[in-house]
């Protein structure tokens, strides 16, 4: 039973969901920290950003972590997909009338939808930046680093992309709003004394992370 209990059981799926989710939140913080450099649009700032991008794609430790990250994203998505399928199967006939608003938040019952949207966005996002950085035909900047900054600036000068980005940060906000505190609950970390704090932190993260992320394209669009 041990093997299936650790992988196949409904609870194990939740543990993995929680662990990968929390790891992804940590990544978002790191990602945001890097991205904030984009706010400095001076030529020095551009060089600094490109140097940072080079570091992130070449330093071995970061590389190792990034593989873990890819794995987490894939696992989180795949696991979420499995859970959603099973949950659908658990209620083949839907209610004619369901008053979901009476007992749960909108975000909590739409995590699969929110997650799917984020996944789609992620594909677009990675195609645009991550793929280009790794395999694209990028020019070199004054320091001889790949000029990712110009790619980003180009993307954020397109209105549709900025709007998509901002909207998707709203989606991320809702996903985090439920996801962060839910991860703690899944791992069994619920205590009358600390849970309110965890929930508050969750709300804080769900607001701050997406707002700062969204700030960057808007800033760059306005100052293009």
């Amino acid at each position: 039973m041990a093997r299936s209990a650790l992988l196949g059981s409904s609870l194990a799926k939740k543990y993995w969901m929680a662990l990968t989710g929390l790891f992804l939140v940590l990544f978002l913080f790191a990602h945001l920290a890097g991205n904030l450099q984009l706010l400095d649009m001076s030529p020095e700032g551009q060089l600094k950003f490109n140097a940072y991008a080079k570091f992130m794609t070449s330093f071995p430790v970061v590389k190792a972590i990034s593989y873990l990250l890819y794995l987490s994203i894939l696992f989180h998505a795949f696991d979420g997909f499995l859970l959603a399928i099973q949950n659908r199967k658990a209620r083949p006939v839907r209610y004619a009338r369901e008053n979901a608003g009476a007992n749960r938040s909108w975000a909590s019952s739409n995590m699969a939808l929110l997650g799917t949207l984020i996944l789609v966005f992620l594909v677009i996002h990675m195609k645009r930046f991550w793929y280009e950085m790794h395999w694209g035909e990028l020019g070199l900047d004054a320091d001889g680093n790949k000029d990712l900054y110009t790619v980003v600036a180009a993307a954020f000068s397109e209105l549709w992309y900025v709007v998509l980005y901002v909207v998707m940060m709203g989606v991320l906000a809702f996903h985090l709003l439920h996801g962060f505190q839910s991860a703690f609950q899944s791992l069994g970390l619920n205590h009358p004394k600390y849970t309110p704090a965890i929930k508050n932190i969750g709300v804080f993260i769900a607001v701050v992370l997406p707002v700062f992320f969204a700030l960057i394209p808007v800033w760059m669009f306005v100052n293009r």
Binding site: N87, K89, A90, R91, A100, S109, S182, L187, L189, N190
Partner: peptide, 29 residues
């Protein structure tokens, strides 16, 4: 064939005996 818990908390609200999500967390532990 029951579904998976996603911590929506709806059960706690509708439970006629008000059983808390804390117990789910304890099961998780």
């Amino acid at each position: 064939g029951f579904g998976n818990c996603s911590n929506t908390g709806a059960c706690e609200v509708e439970c006629p005996k008000g059983i808390s999500l804390e117990h789910i967390a304890r099961l998780n532990r």
